[in-house]
Nucleic acid binder design. Structure first.
Length: 680
DNA sequence: ATTACATTAAACATAT
DNA sequence: TATATGTTTAATGTAA
């Protein structure tokens, strides 16, 4: 039974795509409570202001445009928050849910995106690093920005007041309000953003930082309510903004529309705060500060709030933290599903960041246009990352991308993960091509550089009871190749499995049988009679044979994926980075060092199976862990009986399959036995 | 719809 | 005989 359940979970993985889809898919309206949050609310001041004037001042116009844009963005936010929800979560519901929820799916995965592609996009550590950096940067910048804007507002207000004309005063009031609204929106975006971060555990709760308000603000503070109303009320001016949003970045409109339809049931309507938005300027900051003290007690949990589980799509009510923890551990354990959800969330965050950047830029432009700010538009100093070039607002995204290479402060990658397998492997460190764990583990073709990912996630798999996203064949091969002799007995293979993967410490009968089955089935595994029994070796040629040299992380593919996501904001450099990262650095000194390795490019240290090995610059560089002596040893062990088996392969004929790269490291091995074959 | 592959289960054979 | 090791077949599911 254990076995069964286990396998079941596994099976669900392959459908991971659907996994992803279904996850978000199940969002059947329910989750969208947030979105639904009635449109009654506070935004009135602004609205009336505009109305009263009859005709719109430029500032107002801008304001409304901005509002609308933000509205769209917010809808997007909220919807994604809810869209991810997959309340059911039960496999049984998957199919059914498909009908209801395409919200997040539609949003997240434009048709052209296959789940695998998504994973490819999302999993690499670089991305994560990038994300984190971006986030940190943005947050800081935003905060600063807010501050400055506040100051500006004050200044303006003062100036105007000095002028002391009643009429203008009113106009100014409107203006001010408008901008305040704007600021609020921005802040909300930020908050939502943070919330998302928290959700995926990328941001730890630190009372001091913005994380505090997180829990409360998004819900308690304002906006969701006032804006919609505003929008509705003003109907007309909307179009332009909407269009612009549409064109510029993610096509939110479509999704937003969809979302609204689902948003209907305002399920857990957050305690509609009336307390916010009094009118005064400091509202923003104030409310924020206030909320920070609230609810974020040390005993709380980022995923727990208002008595319910905040896991995307789960809104399970939990009476207390203890119960919630229990629930968390049972319902949201580290499995393929959760991982997939995490990944989706990550993507959401990315998109939001981009959107945020866009909106910020727009705001900047607006302000510049209104002379609210000296021409040098650079509200965002770079407090965090000394990104050299980026000086303009518009470069926010750019700078983030630029700073990515060096920045990677600390991909929460492997090195950590002692006993807390909280970080899904794919998120933390999977290499581009390596794909994440949620990915169909079978698709060997994509994750040839198993060793790379394995090395990076070594610790993770070791401790987390997650099924590794590799096929048995690739695992076995890895096990064998990891040894100096490149040969293992069956039992040693077993041991390797259990040693390397927590997952394989269970259900031994099942996977052991599978291992044996694979050993026998695949020609690439060669049994060699030894003095002390039989050992298994790998026939790389055979192994490669069964995997056509597919570009694992084709840059073009990645590019397409990105563009498919409407990542308008993704600049060339980022794309380039992505593309680059899809090519393992093979010449990197192997040193199996998960910690460091993960921190940079997806160096596939011992990328044994990398199909696109560029015939390592210097032949010697590649064999990372194969020290000469060992190597010879191997030969020695194999010698007698081996030949019969190993030689059976028609070397010359088969050598061809990977003509291009032609130098899979492993072949070094075989070179010895079959000299001159492929090196031709 | 077809095909190839991966996984799982299980029957069976052989060696220790 | 029991267990470990191998081999093989079949059923099932997924992806191309």
């Amino acid at each position: 039974m254990m076995v069964e359940s286990a396998s079941e979970t596994i099976r669900s993985a392959p459908s991971g795509q659907n996994g992803v889809g279904s996850l978000s898919g199940q969002a059947d309206g329910s989750g969208s409570g947030a979105t639904g949050t009635t449109a009654s609310g506070t935004g009135r001041d602004v609205t009336t202001g505009a109305d009263s004037n009859g005709e719109m001042s430029p500032a107002e116009l801008l304001h409304f445009q901005q509002q609308q844009a933000l509205q769209v963005a917010r809808q997007f936010l909220l919807q994604q928050a809810s869209g991810l929800s997959s309340p059911g979560n039960n496999e049984s519901k998957q199919s059914a849910s498909a009908v209801q929820v395409p919200v997040s799916v539609a949003m997240m995965s434009p048709q052209m995106l296959t789940p695998q592609q998504m994973q490819q996009i999302l999993s690499p550590p670089q991305l994560q690093a990038l994300l984190q950096q971006q986030q940190a940067l943005m947050l800081q910048q935003l905060q600063e920005y807010y501050k400055k804007q506040q100051e500006q507002l004050h200044l303006q207000l003062l100036t105007q007041q000095q002028a002391g004309k009643p009429q203008p005063k009113e106009a100014l009031g409107n203006k001010q309000l408008a901008f305040q609204q704007q600021l609020l929106q921005m802040q909300q975006l930020q908050q939502q953003h943070l919330l998302n971060l928290q959700r995926q555990g990328l941001v730890s709760l630190q009372p001091s930082q913005a994380s505090g308000p997180l829990q409360t603000l998004p819900q308690a503070a304002v906006c969701p309510t006032d804006l919609p109303q505003l929008w509705k009320g003003e109907g007309a001016p909307g179009q332009p903004a909407e269009d612009s949003v549409k064109q510029e970045g993610l096509d939110l409109t479509g999704t937003a529309a969809t979302a609204t339809s689902f948003a209907a049931p305002p399920k857990v309507s957050p305690p509609l705060s009336h307390h916010t938005l009094p009118n005064g300027q400091p509202t923003v900051l104030t409310s924020r500060r206030d909320s920070s003290s609230h609810e974020e007690t040390p005993g709380s949990h980022p995923l727990y709030g208002h008595g319910e589980c905040k896991w995307p799509g789960c809104e399970t009510l939990c009476e207390d933290l203890g119960q919630f923890i229990k629930h968390l551990n049972t319902e949201h354990a580290l499995d393929d599903r959760s991982t997939a959800q995490c990944r989706v969330q990550m993507q959401v965050v990315q998109q939001l960041e981009i959107q945020l950047a866009k909106e910020s830029e727009r705001l900047q432009a607006m302000m510049a246009h209104l002379h609210m700010r000296p021409p040098e538009p650079k509200p965002f100093s770079q407090p965090l990352n000394p990104v050299p070039g980026s000086s303009s607002f518009s470069k926010v995204t750019v700078s983030a991308a630029d700073s990515f290479p060096d920045g990677l402060v600390h991909p929460p990658t492997s090195a950590a993960a002692p006993v807390t397998p909280l970080r899904p492997p794919g998120l933390g460190s999977a290499s581009l091509h390596g794909g994440g764990p949620a990915r169909r583990r079978s698709s060997d073709k994509f994750c040839s550089p198993i060793s790379s990912e394995l090395a990076q996630n070594h610790e993770f798999y070791k401790n987390a009871d997650v099924r590794p996203p590799f096929t048995y064949a690739s695992l076995i091969r890895q096990a064998i190749l990891e040894t100096p002799d490149r040969q293992l007995t069956l039992n040693e293979i077993y041991n390797w499995f259990t040693r390397m993967f927590a997952y394989f410490r269970r259900n031994t009968a099942t996977w052991k049988n599978a291992v044996r089955h694979n050993l026998s089935l695949h020609k690439c595994f060669v049994r060699v009679e030894n003095v002390k029994g039989a050992v298994w070796t790998v026939d790389e040629r055979e192994y490669q044979k069964r995997r056509p040299p597919k570009m694992t992380g084709s840059p073009t593919l990645v590019k397409n994926m990105i563009s498919g996501l409407s990542y308008g904001a993704l600049n060339a450099s980022y794309q380039a980075a992505l593309a680059e990262s899809s090519f393992p650095l093979l010449n990197s000194p192997g040193m199996l060092n998960p910690g460091s390795a993960s921190s940079l490019l997806p160096l596939s240290h011992d990328d044994v199976g990398a199909p696109l090995e560029p015939l390592s610059s210097n032949g010697s560089s590649s064999p990372p862990r194969l020290s000469p002596p060992q190597y010879s040893h191997q030969v020695q062990v194999k010698e007698e009986p081996a030949e019969a088996e190993e030689d059976r392969q028609p070397g010359p004929s088969l050598g061809a399959p990977n003509p291009s790269a032609s130098g899979p490291p492993e072949d070094r091995d075989l070179d010895e036995e079959l000299p001159g074959e492929e090196l031709s």
